[in-house]
Design a protein around this nucleic acid. Structure first.
Length: 787
DNA sequence: CAGTGAGCGAGCTTCCGCTTGACTT
C-alpha cells in the first residue's frame, strides 16, 4: 500500500501527477464534488442558521467508498483540489465524508500541472481554509434558495416545470432586452460617397477614397455629385504613421468558445466536448479556466518553439492579466501540452480545435505586427468636403504569421466597406488626381446584433455571471426550458438607391439587398418573454445584472474573514423570502394575452396568447355564443410582434385547392415551410411560390415533379417485392423497405444486394430498434423527453 | 407538417458548480 494518498478533482490530472511523484504516492480523483445538498425542500433549515443537509449522490457512491478504503490505509492524505472556493469546499467535503483525521491530512494547492509546481506544493502544506469553505457554502445556499423558491412561484403563476435562477434568468433577460431593442430599432438611411481616383503618372492604378461626410437625403447626395461634375481634385495632405498590433492572450474557456464559434462554427457545447477529448488524451491543459496565465515551463517551451520555427525576432515574452471580474484563476490558460506539436492525430474537429489552441498560445508569445498606415486627404475644387484615402502596409508580420483573432463585428461588416488595408499608389502633396467614378450609396444603420451562444457567454463573463464549467450547460438549460431557441431566420428584401457619377453625368439606380437574415442566433420565445417580464416585475433585484457582482463581493468578504456567512444570508433571505410570499399571495397569474383588434369579417375580437400547445391566435371569445376559432403561430412569429393582418392570414390556410387522382389536395404551412398534402403524403412547395396563390394545375405539377424526382433516386428495385428498393439518399445509398429505412452495411457491395439480404437486414434492424426502445435510459428521463 | 385550445387534480417539476462517462442520433 502506498504511504500517501493524493486526491485531485480530475482523473486526467491524477494520471499526470502520479507520473511526477513516484511510488510513494497514489494519486486518485474525486471527480468533482462528492456531496451535494439533498434534493428535497428541507435541504436548508432557514430558521436554524441555514443548516444544511448533504448527501452523496448515487453516481458518486462508488468513488467515495473507494477513496474511503484507500484513505484508511494511507499514512497521509493530501487534499489537492483546486485553489478556489469550490476546490476548498471539495477538500472539506472529502475531509468530512472520508472521516479523515486532522493529524494525517494535508491540504496543498498548485495553479499548474508541472513537476516543479507539484513538488513545491508538497513542501508547503496547509490546513483547510474555512473562510473559503464558508464562502462556498454561502454561494451554494443562496443559489439553492433562489432557485427553489423562485421556480415554484413560476409553477403557480405561469406554468409548471419552469425554472428560474441567479444565472439562467439573467441570461434570458439579456436576450429579451436585446430582442426588444432590435424590434424597436428604426434604421436611418445615409448616403455614403466613395470615389475612385488615379494619378496622371499611372492611370491604371486605381484607389478608393471615402467622403468624410454622409448625406441624409437623396437630394443632398445628388446635388453633391452634380457639383462634382466640373470639379478637380488634388492631394491636400499626406500622412504616414507607424502602427502596431499586439497578439491576444491565450485562451480561457470563454474566449475559446467565442473563437471556435466564429472560426469553426462550433456550438459552445461542441467546443467543450472536443476540448475534453483533447485534455483527456494529454494534448492540452485543462479547458475549464478563467486564467490567461502561462506557467514558466510553458513560457520556456513556447519561446524555444518560436525561436526554432520562426526565428529569434518573432519571439517576445509576455505575461497577461485577467480582465474578467470574479476570476478565480485556479488553473493555467488553455494551451497545448507540447508546443512543438503543431498538429495532432485525431478526428477532424479535434485537429481543428487543437490547431486553434496551438496558434493562439504560440501567437501570445510572439512579437507585435508592425504596419505603416498612410492617410491622404483629397480636396474638391467645387465643394468644402474632402475625401480620405488610406492604405496600410505591413512592415513586419510578427504574430500574424500564425494567428489572426476575429471579432464579432467582422462578420457583420460588409466587405465593400472594409477596404482599409488596401494599398495606395505613391502620392505627393498638392498632386492633381483624376476621377474615374464616384458613387453615393444609400446605407442603413444597423440594429444591435442578436446574441450567438458564444457572444452570450462573453456577455455573461463580463458581468461576472456563471463560471467556466457552467457556460455551456447554462446555454443548454435556457434552450431546454423553451425560453430560447437557436435558429436561422430569413431576412427581408430592402431597396436602396445608388447614384453614380461617370462620364460627366449622374445616374440613379435602385438595388435590393437582404437585411436582417440571421444564422444560428438565439431568440427568446413567447414563454421566455413572459417569464422574464414576470420576474422583472416581481423580483427586480434577483434578475438585476449587478446582482451576482454584489453578492460576489460579499462572498469575497466572507472568504477573507471579514464577514460572517450566515449573517450575509440572513440579510439576503429575509427580504427575498418576503417578496416570494407576497408574490404568491398577491400577484395575478402572468397572462400572455394581447388583443390585436377586431376581425373585419365577423366583428369579433382577435387575440393572441400561449395555449396548451404553444402560441395561438383566437377569433372570438369564450363568452360568445359561437365557439371561438384558433390557429397556431408559425415559427418566427411572436405574440409580442405579430400584427392583426398577419394573424388573420393564418386562418386562410389550410386551403383546398382541388383534386388529383380523385383525392383532395390541401395547401398548408408546417414546421418546415409551405406544403401540399395529398393522399396522406407531403409535397413541399418550391421556394418563392406563395402558398396563397397555388391553383389546381400548379399543385398537380408540383406533385408530379416530386414523384419524378423520387423515381430518379431509385437505384435498384426487386421483382420479389415492389416495396423494396435501393435509393440514393443524401449521404449515399440506402435500402427502403416499406416504411423501414435501412443502412447498407459497409462490407456489402451495393450492386450485389439481393432481396434475401434485405429481408435479413430488415429483420435485424427491427430487433435492434426494438431492444433499444425497451431499454429505458436510466436516471436521465430529462434528456429523453426533450421533444 | 394533421388535429388539439375542457376541467378535475395527484404527483411531479426547480438552482449553480465541480467532475466524467454511458447513453442516444
Amino acid at each position: 500500500m502506498a504511504k500517501n494518498l493524493l486526491i485531485v478533482e480530475s482523473p486526467a490530472k491524477a494520471k499526470t501527477i502520479e507520473g511526477y511523484l513516484g511510488k510513494d504516492f497514489l494519486v486518485k480523483s474525486s471527480y468533482g464534488h462528492i456531496r451535494d445538498l439533498v434534493k428535497t425542500d428541507d435541504a436548508i433549515d432557514t430558521a436554524n442558521n441555514f443548516e444544511q443537509k448533504y448527501e452523496v449522490p448515487a453516481d458518486k457512491k462508488a468513488v467515495v467508498s473507494e477513496l474511503k478504503k484507500l484513505a484508511k490505509s494511507a499514512e497521509t492524505v493530501w487534499l489537492a483540489s483546486d485553489e478556489d472556493r469550490e476546490g476548498e469546499a471539495i477538500s472539506w467535503h472529502l475531509y468530512e465524508t472520508l472521516n479523515l483525521k486532522e493529524s494525517s491530512t494535508k491540504r496543498i494547492v498548485f495553479h499548474e500541472i508541472t513537476k516543479p509546481a507539484i513538488l513545491k506544493a508538497i513542501e508547503q502544506p496547509r490546513k483547510i481554509d474555512f473562510n473559503l469553505v464558508n464562502a462556498q457554502q454561502a454561494r451554494r445556499v443562496l443559489d439553492r434558495l433562489v432557485g427553489f423558491e423562485l421556480s415554484p412561484v413560476l409553477w403557480k403563476k405561469v406554468k409548471p416545470s419552469l425554472s428560474a435562477g441567479r444565472v439562467q434568468s439573467v441570461a434570458v433577460r439579456l436576450l429579451v432586452d436585446r430582442e426588444r431593442e432590435i424590434n424597436k430599432f428604426e434604421p436611418e438611411a445615409a448616403f455614403r460617397v466613395v470615389a475612385i481616383f488615379f494619378t496622371e503618372e499611372n492611370k491604371k492604378e486605381l484607389f478608393k477614397a471615402e467622403l468624410s461626410k454622409r448625406f441624409a437625403t437623396i437630394n443632398e447626395a445628388e446635388k453633391f455629385l452634380n457639383d462634382c461634375i466640373p470639379a478637380s481634385y488634388h492631394v491636400k495632405s499626406l500622412e504616414t504613421k507607424p502602427s502596431k498590433r499586439n497578439p491576444a492572450a491565450p485562451f480561457t474557456t470563454s474566449t475559446l468558445q467565442q473563437e471556435a464559434s466564429r472560426k469553426l462554427g462550433f456550438s459552445v457545447a461542441r467546443t467543450m466536448t472536443v476540448a475534453q477529448r483533447l485534455y483527456e488524451s494529454g494534448k492540452i491543459t485543462y479547458m475549464r479556466t478563467d486564467s490567461v496565465n502561462l506557467s514558466d515551463t510553458a513560457l520556456q517551451a513556447a519561446e524555444q518553439e518560436i525561436r526554432s520555427a520562426y526565428g529569434d525576432k518573432y519571439h517576445k515574452r509576455r505575461q497577461y492579466k485577467t480582465k474578467s471580474a470574479g476570476a478565480q484563476e485556479a488553473h493555467e490558460a488553455i494551451r497545448p501540452t507540447y508546443f512543438n506539436q503543431h498538429t495532432i492525430e485525431g478526428d477532424h474537429s479535434e485537429k481543428r480545435l487543437y490547431e486553434l489552441i496551438w496558434k493562439r498560445a504560440i501567437a501570445s508569445q510572439m512579437s507585435e505586427a508592425e504596419f505603416e498606415k498612410t492617410t491622404a486627404k483629397i480636396n474638391i475644387s467645387t465643394r468644402n468636403e474632402e475625401f480620405t484615402a488610406s492604405g496600410e502596409v505591413m512592415k513586419f508580420d510578427g504574430f500574424l504569421k500564425v494567428y489572426f483573432e476575429s471579432t464579432d463585428e467582422e462578420s457583420e461588416v460588409n466587405l465593400e466597406e472594409s477596404d482599409d488595408n488596401a494599398l495606395l499608389p505613391p502620392l505627393r502633396n498638392g498632386q492633381q488626381l483624376g476621377l474615374k467614378e464616384m458613387t453615393a450609396t444609400e446605407r442603413f444603420s444597423r440594429p444591435p446584433a442578436r446574441y450567438t451562444e458564444a457572444s452570450l457567454v462573453k456577455k455573461l463573463e463580463e458581468l461576472g455571471i456563471g463560471r467556466p464549467s457552467t457556460y455551456a450547460p447554462t446555454i443548454s438549460t435556457i434552450q431546454n426550458r423553451g425560453y430560447v431557441v437557436k435558429e436561422d431566420r430569413e431576412g427581408k428584401q430592402r431597396e436602396y438607391n445608388v447614384l453614380t457619377l461617370g462620364h460627366g453625368k449622374v445616374n440613379t439606380t435602385k438595388k435590393t439587398e437582404i437585411t436582417g437574415a440571421e444564422k444560428s442566433k438565439l431568440f427568446p420565445t413567447d414563454i421566455g418573454i413572459l417569464v422574464n417580464d414576470f420576474l422583472v416585475e416581481h423580483f427586480k433585484d434577483i434578475v438585476d445584472f449587478n446582482f451576482t457582482a454584489t453578492v460576489e463581493k460579499e462572498f469575497d468578504e466572507i472568504a477573507n474573514g471579514l464577514k460572517e456567512w450566515t449573517a450575509m444570508l440572513h440579510n439576503f433571505y429575509g427580504p427575498f423570502h418576503k417578496e416570494v410570499t407576497d408574490t404568491i399571495e398577491n400577484a395575478d397569474r402572468a397572462s400572455s394575452e394581447r388583443i390585436l383588434g377586431t376581425d373585419p369579417q365577423t366583428g369579433k375580437q382577435v387575440s393572441v396568447r400561449i395555449g396548451r400547445f404553444g402560441p395561438l391566435v383566437q377569433i372570438g371569445s369564450a363568452d360568445d355564443e359561437e365557439k371561438p376559432v384558433f390557429a397556431s403561430l408559425r415559427s418566427g412569429q411572436m405574440i409580442e410582434t405579430i400584427t392583426l393582418e398577419e394573424a388573420l392570414e393564418l386562418f386562410k390556410l389550410p386551403k383546398k385547392v382541388g383534386k388529383y387522382e380523385d383525392k383532395e389536395m390541401t395547401v398548408a404551412i408546417g414546421r418546415f415551410g409551405p406544403y401540399i398534402r395529398h393522399n396522406n403524403a407531403f409535397y413541399s412547395l418550391p421556394k418563392g411560390i406563395d402558398p396563397m396563390d397555388v391553383n389546381e394545375t400548379q399543385a398537380i405539377e408540383i406533385i408530379e415533379l416530386k414523384r419524378k424526382k423520387d423515381i430518379e433516386k431509385v437505384i435498384k428495385t426487386f421483382d420479389e417485392n415492389p416495396e423494396a428498393r435501393i435509393e440514393q439518399g443524401r449521404w449515399g445509398p440506402f435500402i427502403r423497405f416499406g416504411k423501414q429505412n435501412i443502412k447498407i452495411p459497409k462490407d456489402k457491395d451495393v450492386d450485389k444486394i439481393t432481396y434475401n439480404d434485405i429481408l435479413q437486414l430488415a429483420e435485424s434492424d427491427k430487433s435492434n430498434t426494438g431492444t433499444k426502445k425497451k431499454v429505458p435510459a436510466k436516471g436521465k428521463s430529462k434528456t429523453a423527453k426533450k421533444k
